[in-house]
Design a protein around this nucleic acid. Sequence first.
DNA 1: GATGAATGAGACTTCATTCAT
DNA 2: TATGAATGAAGTCTCATTCAT
Lengths: 209, 209, 209, 209
Amino acid sequence: MSRNSDDKSKERRKVILDAALKTFVKRGYSETRVSEIATEAGVAEGTLYNYFSSKEELLLALFDEKWGGIIEEIKKKIGRLDDPNKKLKAMFSMVVTMFKRNRHLAEIFLVDIKQSSIFLNNYPINRVVEFLDLIETILEEGKRKGIYRKDLDTRVTKMIIFGAAQGIILSWVLSESSAVKNKTFQFSLFRAARALRDIFKSGLVGEKR
Amino acid sequence: MSRNSDDKSKERRKVILDAALKTFVKRGYSETRVSEIATEAGVAEGTLYNYFSSKEELLLALFDEKWGGIIEEIKKKIGRLDDPNKKLKAMFSMVVTMFKRNRHLAEIFLVDIKQSSIFLNNYPINRVVEFLDLIETILEEGKRKGIYRKDLDTRVTKMIIFGAAQGIILSWVLSESSAVKNKTFQFSLFRAARALRDIFKSGLVGEKR
Amino acid sequence: MSRNSDDKSKERRKVILDAALKTFVKRGYSETRVSEIATEAGVAEGTLYNYFSSKEELLLALFDEKWGGIIEEIKKKIGRLDDPNKKLKAMFSMVVTMFKRNRHLAEIFLVDIKQSSIFLNNYPINRVVEFLDLIETILEEGKRKGIYRKDLDTRVTKMIIFGAAQGIILSWVLSESSAVKNKTFQFSLFRAARALRDIFKSGLVGEKR
Amino acid sequence: MSRNSDDKSKERRKVILDAALKTFVKRGYSETRVSEIATEAGVAEGTLYNYFSSKEELLLALFDEKWGGIIEEIKKKIGRLDDPNKKLKAMFSMVVTMFKRNRHLAEIFLVDIKQSSIFLNNYPINRVVEFLDLIETILEEGKRKGIYRKDLDTRVTKMIIFGAAQGIILSWVLSESSAVKNKTFQFSLFRAARALRDIFKSGLVGEKR
DNA sequence: GATGAATGAGACTTCATTCAT
DNA sequence: TATGAATGAAGTCTCATTCAT
C-alpha cells in the first residue's frame, strides 16, 4: 500500500516536473503561467502546490534533478578514462546522446545559460558552473600531460568550448522549429559533434596534413 | 522651434531607449518594470508612452536600432576585405571593440540569444539571424576559395563560431561580476579573442608546426 | 456492536470538537485551518466531514454544546436561590470555576463576544444573549424586591456587568501570556472576582461603612 | 499645485482608511475582502496599494492613527485635572463623545479588544495597552490621595472598568443593529455613562446615602 | 468509516497602460 | 507634451471541500 502510493506520488512529481520543463522552455520562466504547467501536466493548479511550494522552487528542482543527474553520470564516465581528448569526446558524446533522448533538456541547456548573467549570481548552487569546471579540469590535465598547448588559457577556452557546444545545440533546436523553411537541410546532431571535434583538433584550415 | 523640439524629442527617445537597454539587461525583459525604465531615464512613466506604444515595442526598437547599427558597420567593413580569415578576424575585432565601448550591449548579446528559441520564431526581423548569416557567407566564401576544408559544414560551423564567441563574451561579463573571488584573474577581452582565433586556426593540439 | 460503534463515534465527535475549540481560540476562526484541527484531533481531514458538514458548523456546534451546558448549569443553580445578590455571586462563581477548569473556554468567552456585532445578528441561536438575559432577569428581580436602586437601568447594567466580567477574564488570560514580564504579579481569578463584587456592591470609594 | 495634489492625496488616504475601518468592523479583519474596502472607498482595488502596501498595513495604520489620536487628546485633557474621579469621568466623557461622532470607532473599540488575546502578543505597538495604563495610573493616584480604597487592586480594577466601558459601547452598538426588535428601547450613550459612574461610585445597592 | 491527495474558487497583490491635470 | 495617480486584468498561491481508495 505504502509502496503503491509512494510510487504514484513519485510518478506525479515527475509528471509535473516534466511539464514544467516543457513549459519553461517554451515560454521562458517569467512568461510561463502556473496554470499552463498544470494543464500540461494534466492536474489541477492546486495540485502543483502539494509537490512544490512555489513556482520558483519548481525551477530550482528542475535544475537540481535534471542537470545534477547528467553531471554525475559524466563524472563517473570520464573518471574511467585517461586521455583528455577522449574525455572531452566522451563528455560531448554523452551530452549529445542525452539531448537526443530528451529534447526539452536540450532547450533548457540554452535557457539555463541564457539567464546566466542574472542567475549565476543569485543561485548558489549552479549546475552550469559545475559543468564548466569539469571542462577546465580536463583542459588543465591536457596541458600537464603535454597534449594541449602550454599557452592555452583554460579559463577562456572552457567558455569557448562550452559556448561552441551551446551553438550546436541551438542549431539543432532551431533546425526543427524552422524546418518549414529549410526542408532540405537535415541537421544531424552527431555530424555536428564531429564537426566540433574536428575544429577543436585542427582548426578551420584546409590542409589536414 | 520645430528644429529644437525635434532635437529634444529625438534626444528623449534615445535616453529612454538607453534606459530600457540598461534595465532589460540587468533584470531581463519580464522582470523589468516600466517604472524602472522611467526612473532610469529620468522621465515619468506616462512619457514613455508618448514615444513607444508598449513595453514590447521598446524591446523590438532596441534590437532594430542597436543591433542593426552594428551589423551595418560590420558589413561595410568586411566588404572592403578579401581574405575570409581576415574578414572573420575583423568581424570579431569590431564586435569586441564595440562591446568594450558598451557593456550593456555585450550583455544583451547574451540575453538576446537566450530568448532565441522563442524570439527567433516569433519576430520576423531578427538581427541575430543576420549576424549568423554573415558568418555563414564568409565561411562559404572561404570554402570556395579553397581556404577552408571542403567538407566544412558551414551551417553547423557558424553556430559553433557564434557560440564560441558568446562563450567569450559571457566569460568576460562574468569575470567582472565575480571579480571579488578571482582578483588574480584579469580577463582580457582581446587576449580571449586571440585565443579564439588560435583555436579556430589550428585547434587545441600542441605542435603548432 | 451498535453500542460500541456509537460510543466510538461520540468519542470522536468530542475529540474533534475539543480540537476545534483549542485551535479556534488559539488562532481565531478565520485563521484556523481545517488541517490544524484535524492534526490536533489526530484524525484525517476528511474525517472531520463525517461529523460536521463544514468548518462553520463546527463553530456553531461549539457554541451550542460548550456554552449551552454552562448556561443550563447556571440556571439550575440560581433557580434554588432567592437573593439576587447571591444569585449574581453564584453566577460569577460558577463561571470562574468553570474557566479555571477549562482555559480555552475562557478564551472563547472573549473571542465569542469579539465577533458579537457580526455574530449576534447573523446567528439566531446565541448563547451570549442567553447569558445576558439571565443577568438582566436577576437585576430586574433585585429592583422588584427593592434590593437595587429603582432607577437602575437594567439593560445597560447587564452590559456593564458582563463587560466587567469579561475584563477580568481577559486580565487573567493576559496575565499568563505576559507572565514573563510580570513575575511578581500573581493573578488570582478568585481575588479578582471578589474585587468585582466589592465594586458592584459599594463602588470605588474608600469609606466602606 | 503641490498643495492641491498633497491635499488630494491626504484626502484619498483618509477615504480609504475610513472605508477600511467600516469594513473591518462589519466583517472582521479576516473576512474583509480587499475588494470590499475598495468598493466602499469608491476606488479601484489597485489604488489601495498606492497608499498602503498590504491589507495588514491598513489595519495597523488604522490602530495607529485613529486610536493614537484619541489617546493623545485624552492625555492632554486629564493632564489639566487634579481629582482622579474627575479624570475618570472626563476620560469616559471624551470617549463617549468621540464615539458619538464616529460610530465605526466605537465598533473597532470592540473589534480591537476582541482580538486581544491574539493581537496583543503579536503587535508591539498596542494602543489598547496605553489606554489601560492610563486608567491604572489614575487609580493609583486615587489610592495615594486617599480617595480610593487602600486595598483596591488597580491591575484588576482597570480591566473591570475597561470591560464595563466596553460593555456599554457594545450595548449601544447592538441597540441600533437590533433596533427593529426593540423599538421602544431608546439607548442613550450619555445615560449609560451616568449609570456606569453611579455604579463605580456607590455600587448597585439602593440606599444611596 | 477513515484517509489524504486532488480540486478549483477565490484571495491578495502586481504592474502595464490610461487619462485628467 | 509631461506627469504620475488610477485602473483592473491577470498572476500566484491558499485552503475548504470532495472523493477514490
